[in-house]
Design a protein around this nucleic acid. Structure first.
Lengths: 208, 208, 208, 208
DNA sequence: GATGAATGAGGCTTCATTCAT
DNA sequence: CATGAATGAAGCCTCATTCAT
């Protein structure tokens, strides 16, 4: 009866906060379970009541970071904006949120980046998800006549290359002073107005 | 027997270059001695001819990073510039070099920062050294009548707080778009013209 | 209050049945208390009401296996059969019961053997007890004039060697197709008719 | 130069012998790396020079056990016996070797069985390989007109059911006194003469 | 009584470090 | 000099066991 999971969930939240605290204090690099346990005033073994492995813990940390971004993307996809605006929103909202997060706590942001680099496998899942969303946007755009002569996969690949600096948090932070929503809009315009397969065929063969 | 140390020194340099290469390729996180040895085409055991421990290796990496800055600071201290300019040069030259390094290779710069966070103990020594230099500058400034009513230590502490963002590489990079030598000059002016003990007594108690 | 031990005893029995079930299903190797608890629909902690340790649990399992054999041995010892028949019954009844158990459930039998090998310490106690009974039988036999020139201990040791394959369950099962009560009877005859100290002195020195 | 692997290979062999010794002494259940290391007079860490994990060690143990059987099966498959004899040889040779191994060292054989039960995943690979060989035999037999109305997979599945007791070492040992090459031959005759799809259709649906 | 929470000991594995050659 | 062999300490994880409720 009751919700036996509530306690565990609360504990999980508390632990995630703890992790966040540690990350901020000393970077996210090589945090030890012993270290986390001691920060959380429990034995290392007890951590396993809340997370079934260190990996699962990092997944939860990643989820905390990515969940709102995924929600955003889903909202945008479900919206009935015209495709070009939809496309812009898809990237702009994420960009804005990353910039805001960085502005609010640059050290924490940096540390998340580090963490991401150490746990590529976890991050990759989210990148793939974003790619999947992008593919759906591209399909919609193709239905509207854009990107003629290009397959969806080709288009996705090209767009990823062009917009990398507007969606990879690491690059965004690295180029924080030159990246902006305005520039993003420009690039997206260029993509929609200029990206096609016919003229560019020879180049594409290089890309592939 | 010639000078066996020359060989060792050359080997050390080569290894440090190797380390730098590794750091740039894959971040500085959890580089293994085996990994470094294999990158340097030697056995792990042989590394110990050049560095007596992994810690010592990291110290050398740190020294490479800090040495020119220390030299700079020493030069400035030894110069016969008027104290205010001396003070400015003390910070401005370091700031310029960090910004240049970051501009030249942002990823490497980031990785050094990571490394620094992982090896705080090593870094701390250099921070203390810089504090020591600063204390000598402050003493000189006090001789010239500045910072009345403040002890050297109090002054050093206050100045560190105010100039943190102009000398901590992590903060500099983090605020790369808002930090500049010009602003540094302004802040230093404010320090020289405004920092004194009497009026600020109540605040200082808070600081401590 | 009543007799709280009755409940406990019942619980103990139930648990032992549970263990037996688990052993049969998945072998006796590395059964977890958590696993047993869940199979018994109780919390792991509650197991400790019934058995004070995992070791104690295994002792009980062993006891279940050994108890009827011990009872048999006691009955035989208390009986007033002539010594030679008594001796035969001492071994034959155990042999029969082991063969029957194996015939009834070979997998379970195998698993008990495994278990025994993993918990030698527990088993050793029962072996010692059997040795003690045997020593009493041997004493009785010596009173009747058998085994002249041999001490009780020497006799016990020799008999153990000769009858090992008729009382070690592992060996019995291993040699299931060549072991039989008839052969046992032959061997016992040989022991009673042939085992003496004088002629065999030189060999005995080797045995010791 | 030379063969740097030779030492390692020798060490591996030595370790496998050690494992075999341990298995024989105290069963194969829950052998600890520490235990093995101490039996081999080395530190647990050093084991990793020879085997990259405990799993890999057990794989090597398994390979030692299975390799000759696989070779046998391959030889039989490559031979140009008539299919029925080939089929018989395929099983009979394995059966003979298992019985011989058991006869030569029953305790060790038992312990290998235990080990197999603890490391099903490793064993499964070999079972699958045997199934693959069997499928090729069945295909050959079908080309010769046997097993009409049955697919290869169905036939393999049925034969496995019928011959289980002649190829699973655990079952062979368990039934050591009733299993024989002669009986195997009888069963194989029945399979070749009687196994077909048409008449048995209704039964097959049950089997599936 | 019975349970969930918590822990320490011990297992596998990695890695910096040492040592004999 | 340089190496391969070997190790101890430390990290992650499991599990028998205890304790407050």
């Amino acid at each position: 009866m009751a919700r036996p999971s509530t306690d565990l969930d609360a504990g999980r939240e508390a632990l995630l906060n703890c992790v966040e605290g540690l990350i901020e204090q000393r970077g996210g690099v090589s945090i030890t379970l012993a270290e986390l346990a001691s920060a959380a005033n429990m034995s290392p073994a007890n951590l396993y009541r809340f997370f079934e492995s260190k990996e699962a813990l990092y997944e939860a940390v990643a989820e905390r970071w990515f969940a709102p971004k995924i929600r955003m993307m889903e909202e945008v996809l479900a919206s009935d904006l015209p495709i070009r605006e939809k496309f812009n929103a898809f990237y702009a909202r994420r960009l804005r949120s990353i910039i805001a997060f960085y502005a609010h706590d640059p050290v924490l942001a940096q540390s998340y980046i580090e963490l991401g680099r150490e746990h590529m496998a976890i991050v990759r899942g989210y990148i793939d998800l974003a790619d999947h969303f992008l593919a759906r946007l591209v399909a919609e755009a193709k239905d509207a006549g854009y990107f003629p002569g290009l397959s969806i996969d080709e288009t996705v690949s090209l767009i990823n290359l062009m917009l990398q600096t507007f969606c990879d948090p690491e690059l965004i932070i690295m180029l924080i002073h030159s990246v902006s929503e305005k520039k993003l809009a420009r690039v997206i315009d260029a993509i929609f107005d200029g990206l096609r397969g016919d003229a560019a065929a020879s180049h594409l063969s290089v890309v592939v």
